[in-house]
Design a protein around this nucleic acid. Structure first.
Lengths: 148, 148
DNA sequence: CCCATAAAGATTGTATACAATTTAATTTAT
DNA sequence: ATAAATTAAATTGTATACAATCTTTATGGG
């Protein structure tokens, strides 16, 4: 085996995924700026547009993010007026996230984004879907603590 | 088409890549802790073990990172004694990064990491390589400014 | 030669990420 | 029922990321 092929950057799956994630995020930046969201905020809104009135914990499980990241992010979205954060009466440990009217309405503006992005990235939706499926499978394997 | 399939989180390639990158990073954490590196520092060292005495600019192109991220990271690795940062005599705008003896020696300790990670992740090296190749291709398409 | 541009790093400001800890509420086991 | 364990958020501290700006140095016309 050549000296150190296992340590070559170009052989690292991790690096490819890591670099790709950041480059895609950069691509989103100008589009998201128009609707006033950061990338992570957009991901959170995507989850909430599908299903809101969920706890921080549940949102975190969906996004693979913990309260350390979500608490400040959700406070910001609350300040912007896109959602509310209210303690659950049934279980005061939990905080329930609900979209406001404005938060729900923002979905209309977001609808054009995926299409614009595909064009920009020059990736066909077919190959994107195939790749997404594989990466998702990998994500599930790699997931450290699925119960989290 | 169902209400909003384009905005569904599970249909987003970007989210799969983004979440996967973070989960893989978490997997590395305990292994890298043993050799005293963070994930990004490890990536930087991988590049430098392959080729050092390069400028910050060149390292940034290799890693898809800019000086805003690299400057503090490299200062830290300099403090740790793994590398040196010296202005290029030929072009005082550039800073040349060179590994110290300790920096070069650390490679020996790092050699075991990729193997350990594959076992932990439960991914065969064959499928990892196939996926890596696809993501790398995608990375190149998505790259905004290759000249950068 | 001299100025306008460009290039490379460094800096600033904002927004993540996440480990580790803390606080408050709830469950569980005794 | 109550102390111990668990759980959910929030907080703290550290380390990225990156856009935007600034500083210094180099380059290229005129």
């Amino acid at each position: 085996m050549g000296t150190d092929s296992v340590l070559k950057l170009d052989n690292q799956l991790c690096f490819a995924v890591y670099a790709c994630a950041r480059e895609i995020t950069k691509l989103y930046h100008p589009l998201l700026k128009e609707i006033g969201l950061t990338y992570t905020q957009y991901i959170a809104m995507l989850a909430l547009w599908e299903k809101d009135r969920i706890t921080v914990k549940q949102l975190g499980q969906r996004l693979y993010l913990d309260s350390g990241t979500l608490t400040p992010l959700l406070k910001k979205l609350e300040q912007t007026g896109l959602l509310t954060r209210v303690r659950d009466k049934q279980d005061e440990r939990s905080v329930i996230i609900a979209l406001t009217e404005r938060g729900t309405a923002l979905k209309d503006k977001a609808r054009a984004i995926p299409e614009q992005l595909f064009c920009q990235a020059g990736v066909s939706s077919g190959e994107a879907e195939a790749l997404r499926a594989q990466i998702t499978e990998m994500l599930k394997k790699v997931q450290q603590n699925p119960s989290q």
